[in-house]
């Protein structure tokens, strides 16, 4: 599940690189036959309002996404709540059908800080999910305006958010698709060794 900041501060090169990164992610991950048959993808964007840009769907049914445009404030809490609700719903469907599943991944990317009132609650909810191993939460900060401390409240203590080095969206999404392909080849309930994040992470912060 991708939860992406498309608020007005993302205007310009940031949103362009994000769009290109997501496009490339879809292309790369579809080339892996294991991922194609087991990964499901959902996208929630927040910018002015919260949008389910892509309802949760098996990768093989996903058509290309429309480009996002930057607009409005940053209702991150609401977006995270919507994403968690979608994940929980899907998990319950799996449980009822007796389908085993890998821990879902939730990628939260932002260049600012939440502007909605209820973000604390959403942050706590997400953090708890990660702490209880119900989800893998990856917080990615874009640029130096991003408030790392606030973003950290959404992430588990042992996996703090990482700042993207420059605008290396491409490198980040390449890492994400590689990770997804390793996860989809592993036994549900097991966590495979993931590739190094050195390619996209800003290590100095």
């Amino acid at each position: 599940m991708l939860v992406l900041d498309v608020s007005s501060s993302m205007e310009g090169q940031k949103i362009a690189e994000l769009n290109e990164g997501v496009r490339q992610f879809l292309q790369e991950i579809r080339e892996d036959e294991f991922a194609l048959h087991s990964v499901e993808l959902g996208v929630v964007t927040f910018g002015g309002r919260v949008t389910a840009a892509l309802e949760f769907a098996p990768l093989k049914d996903v058509v290309d996404l429309q480009n996002f445009s930057a607009f409005g404030n940053t209702p991150m809490g609401e977006a995270v709540n919507l994403a968690i609700d979608a994940l929980e719903k899907r998990k319950n469907q799996y449980k009822r059908a007796g389908v085993s599943y890998h821990q879902p991944w939730l990628v939260l990317m932002t260049d600012g800080m939440p502007t909605d009132y209820s973000w604390n609650e959403a942050a706590q909810r997400l953090r708890q999910m990660a702490d209880n191993k119900k989800a893998v939460v990856i917080g990615v900060a874009i640029g130096h305006e991003c408030d790392m401390q606030t973003l950290a409240e959404f992430c588990p203590a042992d996996k703090p958010p990482v700042r993207l080095s420059g605008l290396k969206f491409g490198e980040f999404f390449a890492w994400l698709s590689h990770s997804m392909s390793l996860v989809s080849q592993s036994t549900p309930g097991m966590s495979p060794d993931l590739p190094s994040i050195d390619g996209w992470a800003d290590i100095e912060t």
Binding site: Y94, K95, G98, V99, S100, T187, P188, G189, M190
Partner: peptide, 13 residues
């Protein structure tokens, strides 16, 4: 299907 993979309890290991 992994023989120790469950829906309701425990990790495979």
């Amino acid at each position: 299907k992994h023989p120790y993979e469950y829906i309701k309890c425990g990790s495979p290991v």
